[in-house]
């Protein structure tokens, strides 16, 4: 197996995790824990496939992001407006995403668990890549989503650290009461954080369905939403940290695919690698990272 191939595959595997982890950064920096990312990925993958099936890939991605946003709005209404337990709300969304995707798939395609094959975006080839033998897998057949995702890392760093929006987002996640007294609209910022996370998770789901597999398959997210959360924690709630962590997880996953091809170890155990890695990473690093001070705490104006 070529190293370049493994790298290219790690990269592709990292993209959905990274996109979702970036979303998680926005949501958690605003103080909202979003366990519902998994569900947002699921609806993204189903609606992305649906949109692409009927109207082509561009519409597919748009519809997927919209689907993620719709779920995010429910999460925001429940956990920001009504201040219910953010984890309970997130878990309910995951169930909703699972059930509604099955339902819609059954209703529209008469199959509960898959859609027909759908088109993805036109792939990009770096000119002249054919002449570089070793780097060919890295430089050809690149989905535009990969490029967008990579660009989103520095963009997110800039937004979170340098803009007014970012300062306020962070303030709301650290001390919402202080932000409120200074005229920052706490609820709007939290909604923004959650909605961005829904949009990116939806996009990540669509990437899985359209760019990676070419169709929607039930359970195709395989817990990547949760892994993305772990990646965000591992990356210490920063976009660039999330990039590094996602690459690690992407590598683990692509490794597991490669090993399956020729190995004595039962493939079920190989399949566990990303989940084991998540546990190990969290066990080793979670104490060393610092979440936003008011992460997961609903903001009640008259609580003081």
């Amino acid at each position: 197996m070529h190293l370049a191939e493994l790298l290219a595959s790690s990269f592709r595997m990292a993209i959905p995790i990274l996109l979702t982890a970036l979303g998680a950064v926005y949501s958690e920096r605003s103080g909202v824990v979003n366990i519902g990312l998994e569900g947002m990925m699921i609806v993204g993958s189903f609606w992305g496939a649906l949109g692409s099936y009927f109207y082509g890939p561009y519409v597919g991605f748009l519809v997927a992001m919209l689907a993620g946003i719709v779920l995010a709005i429910i999460h925001a209404i429940a956990s920001v407006t009504f201040k219910v337990d953010q984890i309970v709300s997130g878990v309910a969304l995951n169930i909703l995403a699972y059930g509604s995707s099955r339902f819609m798939s059954q209703a529209i395609f008469k199959m509960a668990t898959t859609t027909p094959h759908v088109a993805g975006l036109v792939k990009i080839n770096i000119p002249g890549a054919d002449s570089v033998p070793y780097l060919k897998p890295l430089l050809t057949g690149i989905s535009p989503i990969i490029i967008i995702t990579i660009l989103l890392v520095p963009i997110s760093e800039f937004i979170i650290n340098r803009t007014v929006f970012g300062l306020r987002l962070r303030a709301v996640g650290e001390n919402p009461l202080a932000a409120d007294t200074l005229g920052v609209n706490v609820f709007r910022m939290k909604y923004a954080g959650v909605l961005i996370s829904g949009m990116l998770a939806g996009l990540a789901g669509a990437y899985l369905a359209m760019e990676h597999t070419g169709m929607y398959v039930e359970g195709m997210t395989q817990g990547k939403g949760y892994i993305a959360l772990a990646a965000m924690i591992f990356g210490n709630w920063t976009p660039s940290g999330a990039l590094m962590a996602s690459l690690l997880f992407g590598f683990a996953e692509s490794l597991s695919f490669r090993v399956v091809e020729n190995s004595f170890i039962p493939y079920q155990f190989i399949k566990m690698i990303p989940y084991m890695l998540t546990l190990i990473v969290l066990a080793g690093f979670v104490r060393k990272s610092t979440p936003p001070a008011a992460d997961g705490v609903p903001y009640e104006r008259n609580a003081g």
Partner: peptide
């Protein structure tokens, strides 16, 4: 000190 009354330069602070 500036939170909520930031001085803007474009979209950044």
């Amino acid at each position: 000190i500036i939170l909520g009354s930031e001085i803007r330069a474009g979209i950044s602070i």
